[in-house]
Amino acid sequence: MDKVIILQSTITCPNCGHQKEETMPTDACQFFYECENCKTRLKPKHGDCCVYCSYGTVVCPPKQNGNSCC
């Protein structure tokens, strides 16, 4: 049975608290993300592979699939 991969994740900006639901890429990690509210450029926390693993409600598709990230 195939795993269902969730592609939607809500990113929360640690600077201003703004939240936005985004669609995660399935073929690459997203290293940078700009908050549309305060324009802060987010990058992954130490040890995380992408902004979704650091600031999202759902980890990136490779991690959901049980793989190490990109």
Rank of each mutant, 00 (worst) to 15 (best):
K45P: 05
D2I: 13
T40H: 08
E34W: 07
N37H: 12
C50T: 03
N65W: 13
G47I: 02
D2W: 12
S9W: 01
K3F: 14
K63F: 04
T57Q: 04
G66K: 10
V59W: 05
D48G: 00
K45Q: 07
V4F: 09
Q8F: 11
I11W: 03
T12M: 07
Q64D: 12
E21A: 11
T23F: 06
K63W: 02
V58M: 10
L7N: 10
V58R: 03
T26P: 05
F31E: 13
S9G: 01
S9Y: 01
T23C: 12
P44R: 04
P61W: 00
A28V: 06
N37V: 08
D2H: 14
H46P: 00
G66W: 13
T26C: 14
T23Y: 14
C53I: 07
N65L: 15
N15R: 03
P44F: 02
H18L: 11
R41L: 01
H18K: 05
S54P: 02
V59D: 08
N37L: 12
I5P: 00
Y33Q: 02
P25F: 08
C16M: 06
C16L: 01
K43E: 02
Q30W: 00
T26K: 12
V51F: 01
C38E: 12
K3Q: 15
Q19T: 09
Y55F: 14
E21N: 11
C35G: 02
C53P: 07
V59G: 05
C29D: 04
T23E: 14
N67H: 14
C16H: 01
K20L: 03
D27F: 09
C69T: 10
K43Q: 09
C53T: 06
M24W: 03
S9D: 05
Y55D: 02
V4W: 12
C60F: 01
C70E: 09
D2S: 15
K63T: 11
C35Q: 01
A28G: 08
P61Y: 10
C35S: 07
T40G: 05
M1R: 10
Y55V: 06
R41E: 11
Y33E: 04
G17F: 05
C50G: 01
G47H: 03
S54T: 04
K63R: 14
G17L: 05
Y52E: 07
F31I: 09
V59F: 08
C29Y: 00
Q8W: 10
Y55G: 03
N37D: 12
C49M: 00
Y52I: 01
